[in-house]
Computed example of a mutant assay.
Amino acid sequence: MVILAAGCVLWRRAAVTDQIELALVHRPKWADWSHPKGKLKHGETFADAAIREVREETGMTCALGPALPTARYLAEGIPKEVRYWAAEATGGVFLPSKEVDRMLWLSPIAAQGRLTHERDRDLVPLLLGALRPAGEGP
């Protein structure tokens, strides 16, 4: 058995600085900061699950962009596969819930420092690379 999940590295451009900001969610059950993600429902595609999870956990609508690397790890001893996308926030309002009690918009550097798991931190530079226009340097 493998747990199938999907999520997004959700981003937006800050209104004042035009710099990229990333949305991180705090899950009180696990006391961690992560990218929005969750398990697939029966018959749901990975992409549909990623969009749904962003909406459920952040209140944001989003437009999926490039696929990011899939994370594979053990969750409570069970193999888990999480497919990620870069996703631009297109609107919405965060409302705390039992599952996610806080959300922050942070610069990529601040987000890397806040993310609990290394596998989530690794997605930040990959997102920035995916958003960089072709031909631009590092």
Rank of each mutant, 00 (worst) to 15 (best):
A5P: 07
L10Y: 03
D48A: 15
L10T: 11
V93G: 06
D122M: 07
V124C: 09
L115I: 08
R27W: 06
A49D: 06
K98F: 13
A134T: 11
T45E: 09
V100S: 00
R121I: 03
A67W: 05
R121G: 00
V82D: 03
R102W: 05
K80C: 14
V54N: 07
A47G: 08
R132A: 15
E136F: 12
R121F: 00
P79Y: 10
R13I: 04
R119C: 00
A89S: 15
D120R: 04
L64W: 09
P96V: 06
I20R: 01
S97F: 07
P108R: 00
E56R: 07
R83E: 09
Q112F: 02
D18N: 14
D101I: 06
R27C: 07
K41G: 08
E44L: 05
A111V: 05
A86D: 02
I51G: 02
L115F: 05
M103N: 10
E53T: 08
A130P: 04
A130M: 04
I78Y: 11
G92R: 07
L74T: 09
G43L: 06
P125W: 08
H117T: 12
A63N: 09
T90Y: 14
M103K: 09
A130D: 04
W11T: 02
L74A: 13
L24E: 08
P66A: 15
E136D: 13
Y84K: 03
P69T: 10
P28M: 05
A63K: 14
P96N: 11
F94M: 08
A50I: 07
E56T: 02
L106I: 10
P36E: 05
Y73K: 06
A31K: 13
V2K: 13
L74R: 14
V82W: 02
R132T: 15
L4G: 03
F46S: 12
Q112C: 13
L68G: 03
T70V: 15
D48P: 05
A14W: 10
M103P: 04
V16K: 13
V16G: 07
T61P: 00
V9Y: 01
Q112E: 15
P108T: 06
T61I: 04
L95Q: 15
L128I: 02
T17G: 10
E56V: 06
L4I: 01
G92P: 03
W105M: 05
R55E: 13
W85D: 01
L68Q: 01
S107Y: 05
D32L: 13
K39D: 14
T17N: 08
L126A: 10
R12P: 03
A89I: 07
W30D: 14
T90D: 12
V2P: 03
K80G: 02
A23S: 12
R52Q: 12
A31H: 13
E57R: 08
E53A: 03
A67Y: 06
D18M: 07
Y73G: 01
F46P: 01
R27S: 12
I109E: 15
R102K: 14
K80W: 01
A5S: 15
